[in-house]
Nucleic acid binder design. Sequence first.
DNA 1: CGGCAACTTGACAATGCTCAACGCGGGTGG
DNA 2: CCACCCGCGTTGAGCATTGTCAAGTTGCCG
Lengths: 244, 244
Amino acid sequence: MPDAAIRKLSSFAPLSPADIALLSSLLSDPKMVGPRTALSREGEPPGEVQVVLEGYACRYKMVSNGGRQIVAHLVPGDFGDLHGFLLDRMDHTITTLTTCQIAFIAKADMQRLFERPQIAKALWRSVLVSEAVMREWLVGMGRRTAEQQISHLVCEILFRLERVGRANKHRFEFPLTQNELGDSLGLSTVHVNRVIQGLRDAGLISWRGADLQVLDRTRLMALCDFDPLYLHPNLVEQARAGAA
Amino acid sequence: MPDAAIRKLSSFAPLSPADIALLSSLLSDPKMVGPRTALSREGEPPGEVQVVLEGYACRYKMVSNGGRQIVAHLVPGDFGDLHGFLLDRMDHTITTLTTCQIAFIAKADMQRLFERPQIAKALWRSVLVSEAVMREWLVGMGRRTAEQQISHLVCEILFRLERVGRANKHRFEFPLTQNELGDSLGLSTVHVNRVIQGLRDAGLISWRGADLQVLDRTRLMALCDFDPLYLHPNLVEQARAGAA
DNA sequence: CGGCAACTTGACAATGCTCAACGCGGGTGG
DNA sequence: CCACCCGCGTTGAGCATTGTCAAGTTGCCG
């Protein structure tokens, strides 16, 4: 099911049937990867480009005191490392969180993708949007409360999954551990736990296991001042209005 | 003096004399811009690409409670917005901090730059390194103490300025306000002040006005666990060893 | 049934924030 | 030329959000 990646890229630039066929062929042989498996390690030269087709993965860095900071989440449709394609060594580690379906694209095949103008445009736009996501994380860690940060991340993932057709109404798969959530936001597990309980008590979300539901999207977005503009949702004007 | 930008790009990919001539011509007519002047505003369509040739600028976002979060600093050699070149609207604001010399490059001229493979490679690499810088900021805000964060930022700027020939030994221009420093790191001005005094008392730095000296680089780097790998300093093998 | 990982709860500590006031210095208008 | 003013830096006191440590519970999987 390469559809998440193709949906994602199609939302960044209109792709021709030939573009889509090329992408499909390069994504057609994904591998199953178990949970908590490193795909690429800090300090090592990058290998093939990984594309997450199913499951959750993340980028992180360790700090000397033993702490971990997750700096990005990868959901279906996301590319692991366009970085590796141009840089010498990884400056962070990429790992799966859950069991994932990952397609691996060799550098030569990446060249073929970048030779197609619309695919190249979509890929670079996706890089720029992932930068925008990082900027938003910086804003959260610097200037938002723990409650707002957690709410903001929930909104972010909701919007990103909707973009690739992986959210059902206000419900989506959110398989993070409270510990991983803390490592993402710079919070302790204990504090994450207490804040989550607050959000549940406030009737904003329900979260059991990997099943997360946003019960009151409007209030949740208001709470954390969520403005989806930074995800650049409307880069491709939906000419396909009215399609089933 | 387009040399900062050319030095920067040359450190990311080897440029031919023709490449450098093209860059020089596009950077040859910079404009003086006063301090605290917006170059590009959140929500607006991006305009020309700004290149900082002299002075400090930054990207920031505001939050609803009135707080500001600076998400990146632009020093001589940095490009304001390759983003604008591909995206529809700015998701953050760019402003000068000090008086700056800024070159403006029209989109059509950016096209010409991207048509040159080595320039394109250098530009994209610089984008990826700026992402790495953001990741490091996330690590700092999430997992480092205020003292480490401030030290880390000082080290980052030192290394970045060295790369473009703007640092003299351990001394460089650092014209930020303590308030701006706090807005960069998610700290209050008061706390920044106290931490800075600690760093001074510890004999690590001297900072008066815009003049910052790193008095003990080794200890400063050790304090904040600074590893310059993430800046990808050695992408171009220095074949010019021994040059004066 | 046992074990382990994730979640939960409580008590306490601390890093960093807020509010408030004051000094210092440079720029500007009278 | 002097005085004022405003921005920046500095200091103090009290407070709050969040972290740490420790222990207990739950639930799934073997």
